[in-house]
Design a binder for these strands. Structure first.
Lengths: 385, 385
DNA sequence: CAAGCTTTGTTCGATCACTGGCGGAAGTCG
DNA sequence: CGACTTCCGCCAGTGATCGAACAAAGCTTG
């Protein structure tokens, strides 16, 4: 029956979430008989999905045998494709990172070259971790542009020439491939790692551009065309003179993105080109850079204030290149959000810097892959096969 | 197992959605044996949830016996509580309206008086429709303020003095009561009635204030504190002088709400007090009123443009008092949204006037009640009892 | 320290829900 | 009018789940 829990997939979900660690736990939580649970767990162990650890502490009777995900036979890849870099992590079923690497790589080289590079590095990571290629179960990938998630095809991505409508998953045979926007996977990674109990979260990436990943009801919100979260081109007041590459003016990105801040710094006589330059200047103690970063925070805060009223998240995470000087950015953001949003929406709202940092996207992409593999439907299919 | 369909609840869901109308349909769709389906359907018929209509058209063999929701034994109430009115509809299990009424009623009279009125009118509607009180299965209610949906308690509602934290459901014994914000139920009603295939929809209510109901993945998004959709206090550019009752300035509501438009009309020498006055003036051919309504549309459009980028809905529905002159309001909204939002997000976006009109909230509230009653969990409980 | 208690996990017969084949019902088609 | 098709109920067979009894393993207590 619907939502009568207890299928192999549900049992595994409870184990993977850490909600249940013993057979008794599972029986209690699912309401199934202990004997049925034993059968299910046996099946999962036989398929290599679960393993027993040695007996744990007794609570007055026979000590339970703890269960956990089997971390040997299954590995997953998380790929963070940026405009100028490629970062890959290899993870086991529990989300532990087994190996990682990062290389400079221009996404503009086109899908053939870039995906061949990914394939090559995945092979190297597998051998570093000592796992056979056949252990690779699924691959998650975050790319810097809009994607039709169902098919894994980029949808007119502005900074990925040659990738439009390219069927990325077909490049990797015998392995499920999930492709999503980079900000989405960052949001997922941050929520799963740092805020597992938070059901509504926004992840704001402040780099050259500005984007936002949306977690609603614990899952990613991608919108009708998969373009949700594109907040870089929302209008901010009082900056009608700032033209944006999108053709409009006063876009958030055109006044508060890393490139925009760098340009304004240059105008003030402090030469800077990229967001990284700005970060360096702030860290070197430039008061002008600091002031502009804080001002950028205020502008981002103005947009976020509206989104807080609209979406009512519990947590807003700030990530991306500029967040390395997050104290100043956050100060500006908080200042505006708490002034301009409704008290009911801000009362329990936290605005925090990213905890997963530079790994956010790759980790999130890996989690996307793991969760796909662990989805009850998929597990039931595996067990019944 | 999870998502193996076929429980009585799932069967009923298919029948109620019109996805399946015969036993064979159900067998095909669920994958269960015909004999099993027959059992299930028998149980549903026995409980009075489903009934057979006479045989339909043959497709070359024995004609199927069509099934539909039993509309006699179950009725549902949908209550639209406004600041100054109370509208109630009585619906059967299929969503058909059996009776309705509307009375002036000040929500500020407080919960005791208002809910006693609701109770009284419900009784009258039941007798008009010729159904016993015991047939009332659930009650949905939309109220003009934020609500903690899980408990049905208003959460510091600004225009509902005396209602803060009042446990509305306790007022109606022996009947499930679901209380939500009025804009939320309007969004739900519009989506279920007019856009059943649309999974992401915004319903914007333009009245004295401005609010927004959010349908994401086919369900209502209420946010962390249930305050999602409160877009009336998002800042619009270029109106720093407009003070708002919330204490800030340049709020959307303070420049484009019905009261704000009326005030600006008065300043231009055309006396008006409320949104209704504005509507009357437009209908009477006042070019100044028309111009201001269109301008209000542009301001609303500016905010919506940002939300379209962020949320990426498929449909935006415009409702509320001012939408009676929707041609002019919509023209302004469309103008700005299509100019300021990203092409990918606007390409398949429709911006349309509400089809359910004045009944939107009451219908939506009724649907909330019906869907609660028809939820697979609840049906399984009923059938197994 | 041995007997009893508590909690965990397994075994196995009983049970119950689902299946799928069969036949009857109720139409269409040639 | 008979052959065919589709729909539906009946019923024995099957397989998954249950629950009671049992075994395991540590704690508790006299």
């Amino acid at each position: 029956m619907t939502s009568i829990p207890g299928s192999p997939g549900d049992v595994l979900t409870l184990i993977s979430a850490g909600t249940a660690t013993t057979r008794s736990d599972l029986a209690r939580l699912t309401g199934l008989a202990r004997s049925t649970i034993s059968q299910r767990v046996d099946a999962l162990i036989e398929r290599g999905l679960v393993e027993e650890t040695e007996s744990g502490e007794s609570t007055g009777g026979r000590p339970p045998r703890h269960l956990r995900l089997q971390t040997e036979d299954h590995v997953f890849g998380g790929v963070d494709l940026g405009a100028t870099h490629c970062r890959i992590v290899l993870m086991d079923l529990s989300g532990e990172v087994l190996a990682e690497c990062e290389d400079p790589l221009l996404v503009a080289e086109g899908p053939e070259i870039v995906l061949a590079h990914v394939d090559d590095r995945l092979g190297r990571l597998l051998s570093v971790a000592g796992r056979p290629r056949t252990a690779l179960r699924a691959l998650g990938m975050g790319v810097p542009g809009p994607v039709e998630f169902a098919t894994g095809r980029p949808n007119n991505p502005p900074i990925m020439p040659g990738w439009n409508d390219y069927p990325i998953p077909e490049h990797f045979a015998d392995c499920a491939v999930l492709v999503d926007n980079d900000v989405n996977v960052m949001a997922l990674g941050e929520q799963r790692n740092a805020f597992p109990d938070t059901r509504h979260l926004l992840f704001v990436k402040v780099g050259t551009g500005i984007g936002c990943g949306i977690v609603a009801e614990g899952g990613l919100h991608r919108g009708a065309q998969g373009s949700a979260g594109d907040i870089g081109h929302i209008r901010v007041s009082g900056h009608e003179d700032a033209g944006c590459r999108c053709g409009n003016s006063a876009c958030l990105e055109a006044v508060a993105g890393g490139a925009a801040v760098a340009r304004r710094l240059t105008e003030l006589g402090v030469p800077a080109e990229t967001g990284a330059d700005v970060v360096a200047l702030v860290q070197a103690g430039s008061t002008q850079a600091l002031r502009l970063v804080r001002e950028a925070g205020r502008l981002i805060g103005e947009v976020l204030a509206g989104l807080v009223n609209f979406f009512n998240p519990e947590v807003i995470v700030i990530g991306g290149a500029l967040s390395r000087v997050h104290e100043h950015l956050l100060a500006g953001i908080r200042e505006t959000v708490y002034r301009r949003s409704l008290p009911l929406a801000t009362h329990h709202l936290s605005i925090v810097p990213s905890r997963t940092g530079i790994n956010a996207a790759a980790l999130g992409a890996g989690i996307l892959a793991i969760e796909h593999y662990l989805s009850p439907d998929n597990i039931n299919r595996i067990v019944n096969a």
